[in-house]
Simulated scan of single mutants.
Amino acid sequence: MELNSIQPADGAKHYKRRVGRGIGSGLGKTSGRGHKGQKSRTGGFHKVGFEGGQMPLQRRLPKRGFKSLATPFKAEVRLSQLDSLPIAEIDMLALKQAGMVPELARVVRVILSGSITKKVTLTGLIVTKGAKAAIEAAGGSVA
């Protein structure tokens, strides 16, 4: 193979269609643009969503909701989930390894949902007032 003999595979390339070159070509006169109107003119284009001056759909509908960009980095854990863990020293790494919080989580909050019966020690986690009281009532501690 020589550099001067390299060429594209058959069918990979095709010529641009030349429109407006007589009746016999099938694309003469209006060149496939139809008759009159904005889209038949040169430079005749409009923005996506433009409805001819009518108030566009995306502006007619009300604004609604909000998606926080921090959501993937926050996680919640219930007391009942902590109770099911086989370890007593619980931190963020232990929760990630147990699959209770996603790998992306940076902030983990322990909430009062369910109950806890065993003594656990929490480190590096945010704990709600109710959850803290329940953990301490079970003999555990929050650092």
Rank of each mutant, 00 (worst) to 15 (best):
P72R: 09
M100N: 06
A88E: 14
S84N: 13
P62H: 07
M100L: 15
K29V: 10
Q7I: 00
R60F: 12
G37Y: 10
K36A: 08
D10I: 01
S80A: 14
F50W: 15
K129Q: 05
F50D: 14
T30Y: 09
L112C: 05
R21F: 02
F66W: 15
K13G: 00
G49A: 11
K118T: 06
P72K: 10
H46N: 14
T121P: 04
F73G: 02
V101P: 00
G28C: 02
A94F: 00
I87P: 08
S115H: 07
V48Y: 09
P56E: 10
L93M: 13
G37T: 04
M55T: 13
G44K: 09
I116F: 01
K119V: 04
E2P: 07
A138T: 01
A138W: 04
V120R: 06
I126D: 03
S113Q: 10
A133E: 08
F50V: 07
Y15C: 08
R59A: 11
Y15S: 15
S80L: 03
E76Y: 11
V48K: 15
G26Q: 02
A133L: 07
I87G: 01
Q81S: 12
A98W: 11
G99T: 05
K39M: 12
R60W: 09
K74P: 06
L3K: 12
G32H: 00
A12M: 11
D10E: 15
G65Y: 08
G43W: 01
K29Y: 08
L95F: 02
V19C: 08
R109A: 00
H35F: 04
G140P: 07
